[in-house]
Amino acid sequence: TEYKLVVVGAGGVGKSALTIQLIQNHFVDEYDPTIEDSYRKQVVIDGETCLLDILDTAGQEEYSAMRDQYMRTGEGFLCVFAINNTKSFEDIHQYREQIKRVKDSDDVPMVLVGNKCDLAARTVESRQAQDLARSYGIPYIETSAKTRQGVEDAFYTLVREIRQH
Rank of each mutant, 00 (worst) to 15 (best):
Q94Y: 15
P109H: 10
A120Y: 05
Y156N: 15
I23K: 11
G137L: 03
K103F: 14
T123A: 12
L22F: 09
E36I: 01
S38M: 05
S105I: 13
E97T: 10
Q21K: 13
D56P: 01
L112N: 02
T73W: 14
K116H: 15
E152G: 07
Q128N: 07
A17S: 03
Q164M: 06
D104R: 11
E48S: 13
G150I: 10
I138D: 02
S64T: 08
R148E: 13
I20P: 00
R67S: 15
Q149Y: 06
I45Q: 05
F27L: 03
R163E: 09
E152T: 09
Y95R: 03
T1Y: 11
E62C: 14
Y63S: 13
Q149D: 10
Q94L: 13
C117S: 10
P109R: 07
I20C: 05
V151L: 13
K146L: 14
I23L: 15
S16F: 00
A145E: 00
E75F: 10
I35M: 05
S38R: 01
L52S: 03
E142W: 02
G12W: 09
Q69M: 10
T34I: 00
F27K: 01
G14L: 01
P33F: 01
L132E: 05
L119E: 15
S16L: 00
D46V: 06
P109A: 07
F155E: 00
R40N: 04
E125D: 10
K87H: 07
G14A: 00
G150A: 10
G76Q: 01
F81D: 03
Q94W: 15
E142I: 04
G12M: 11
F89E: 03
R101Y: 06
K116M: 15
A65P: 14
A10S: 11
C50K: 05
A58T: 11
Q21F: 08
E152S: 10
G11H: 13
K146N: 15
T123G: 12
Q60C: 15
I35N: 04
V108C: 06
R122V: 11
E142C: 03
V124K: 11
K100S: 05
R148D: 10
T57H: 04
G14M: 00
R127N: 08
S16I: 01
Q42N: 06
L51T: 14
A133M: 04
S126H: 11
D104S: 10
T157H: 11
K4C: 05
D104H: 12
V80A: 04
L5S: 00
K87R: 12
D131E: 09
Y156E: 15
K87L: 10
R122Q: 12
I141T: 06
I162L: 12
D68R: 06
H26Y: 12
R67L: 15
V159H: 04
T147V: 08
A121D: 10
I138V: 07
N25W: 07
T49I: 06
I141L: 09
A82W: 04
Y39T: 00
D118H: 01
E2H: 04
M71F: 14
V102M: 13
H26R: 02
E48N: 12
F81S: 03
D104E: 11
R40C: 07
R163V: 07
A154C: 09
S16W: 00
V102N: 08
R127F: 12
G9K: 00
L132M: 11
Q42F: 05
L78Y: 04
S38I: 07
Q128K: 10
K87T: 11
A154L: 15
G137P: 02
E2T: 04
F77D: 01
N25T: 12
V108K: 04
V108T: 06
V151C: 07
R96N: 03
V113A: 04
I141S: 04
V111W: 00
V6L: 11
V102I: 13
A58C: 06
E2P: 05
M110H: 00
K41E: 10
L112V: 10
A58D: 04
V124P: 12
E62Y: 15
V108M: 09
D32W: 03
D153R: 06
T73P: 08
Q42R: 08
Q42G: 12
D106G: 13
V159W: 10
I141Q: 04
E62N: 15
V13F: 03
Q60P: 14
S105N: 04
Q94I: 09
D46R: 10
K41M: 06
V8N: 01
I45E: 04
S16G: 01
E62P: 15
S64F: 11
A129I: 13
Q42W: 06
G74A: 15
I92K: 02
D107K: 09
Q94C: 10
F89R: 05
I92C: 08
T86L: 13
M66H: 14
T49A: 09
V159E: 03
E2K: 03
E152Q: 08
V108D: 02
Y140D: 01
Q98T: 14
V159M: 15
L5F: 12
R101W: 04
Q24N: 13
E90R: 09
E152D: 10
A58K: 06
V80P: 02
T73M: 13
F155L: 09
V151G: 11
D32T: 03
S126D: 10
V28P: 06
A133S: 05
D131L: 09
V80D: 02
L55P: 00
D68E: 09
K41W: 12
F27P: 01
M71D: 13
D32V: 03
T147D: 15
V108Q: 04
P33N: 02
G114N: 05
E62R: 13
M110N: 01
D46H: 11
T143G: 07
G47K: 07
Q130L: 11
A133V: 04
A65S: 13
I54M: 11
I162H: 04
G114F: 02
F155T: 03
A129S: 04
K15L: 00
I83P: 13
V151N: 08
H93S: 14
I54W: 02
A10V: 06
Y63Q: 14
S126M: 08
L78G: 02
D104P: 10
Q21S: 14
H26P: 01
E36R: 00
K41V: 14
S64Y: 11
D107H: 13
L22N: 15
H93I: 14
P139V: 07
V13G: 13
D118C: 09
E97F: 03
L52N: 03
G76I: 15
G137V: 03
G47D: 08
L18W: 01
D56V: 01
G76W: 00
E2Q: 04
R160E: 14
D53M: 03
T123V: 10
R122F: 11
T123R: 08
